[in-house]
Design a binder for these strands. Structure first.
Lengths: 141, 141
DNA sequence: ATGGGGGTTCCACCAACTGGAAGGTCAAGA
DNA sequence: TCTTGACCTTCCAGTTGGTGGAACCCCCAT
């Protein structure tokens, strides 16, 4: 199968598939005209990658997960560890976003959004941090 | 004030401040020895940027927000629009992460995490999508 | 004069692609 | 046979928001 068909079947853009070959995640054969030729196993691998990426695993996680997948002597603990750590990352990110969301939603709510210049949002952004200020949470970035 | 002091006062790394000058967000003066010299207004601007970035605004949003801040004839609606759109982006991101979280938490829970190879996480990742499958949500990436 | 702690520039790198240019290949139709 | 158009190839650059490091300059105290 050529890259176009594999892209259709795997749901990944051809560009991405070439990139994955570049970084050694997949190794299609080449036909005499230089075209990449994908086997069923390549399709399977790409689908695996697509699914793992859609769950937010990094490329390096994906690489490791693929190795574990191909290692019939793996310990499921190794897989679980990667997934658990990823879960922690996700939770941290969610917390961070919700903290932003909270402040932002409050500010948006306060702002009249009319044609006058007065704006609580800009007031907040330009507020100098005051020592001992009440309700001043540390922003984590 | 030199960059080191401004970094301390604004809470931004010196590297970041130089970068902000590079992309035209701040324009400190230069003293004869080539050192950047920051005014109080530069500090104020950098604090504004730090706060806006900590709320997740993009650099381009920050640029626009700064312009609006300096425009006494602004309409608060313009500010509110930027913030509201950002809020929508945040909500979308949170939704995406929560969807990942849900699947992932389920899989992690299912996995024994011992030294045996059997692993529901890998099973899920390698499952071929089946047409007509029940409970098969589209993953948005 | 020398050492240390500032500062400067510039270049490379991170993740995970994506867009586009310039060109080779192949099958079908006039 | 030629041409058209859909494929495919490689390579380079850009995205976001910085960060690390090298090589070098500057200034003050000892």
């Amino acid at each position: 199968m050529n890259i176009g068909e594999i892209a259709r079947l795997s749901g990944l853009p051809a560009k991405t598939i070439r990139y994955y070959e570049d970084i050694g995640l997949v190794a299609p054969l080449r036909s005499t005209n230089g075209y990449r030729t994908f086997r069923q196993s390549d399709l399977h691998k790409l689908a695996f990658l697509g699914r793992a990426r859609s769950l937010g695993f990094t490329i390096e996680d994906c690489r490791t997960l693929l190795e574990l997948y191909n290692d019939s002597a793996r310990a499921s603990a190794d897989v679980k560890k990667i997934a658990s750590e990823h879960l922690v990352r996700i939770d941290a990110k969610v917390e961070e976003l919700l903290a932003m969301r909270k402040t932002l939603a409050h500010l948006v709510h306060e702002c009249a959004g009319d044609n006058r210049p007065n704006c609580p949002i800009l007031d907040d952004l330009s507020a100098k941090p005051v020592a001992g200020q009440i309700g001043c949470e540390k922003t984590s970035r």
